[in-house]
Amino acid sequence: MRLHIDWTACDGRGVCTELLTEMLTEDDWGFPVLRNGDTVPPPLDGAARRAVDRCPMLALRLVT
């Protein structure tokens, strides 16, 4: 599974970077940066789903 960010929707609120610190960090303006690509490792499946669910801008999606 891959984490997809819709950049036209993302507002850099920072919820995903808290819920998915293993995959995401923040840039100079608070927008998420993928640390090592967009592939979600199986142990982070649940955290990724929570990040998708809690994104206030609905900018995150899990795609296969």
């Binding site: 950049w7 036209t8 993302c10 507002d11 850099g12 840039d27 100079d28 303006w29 927008f31």
Partner: peptide
């Protein structure tokens, strides 16, 4: 003007 990293990153 839509994507945060571009809107902020390119002027910088």
């Amino acid at each position: 003007g839509q994507c945060g990293p571009c809107v902020n990153g390119l002027p910088r």
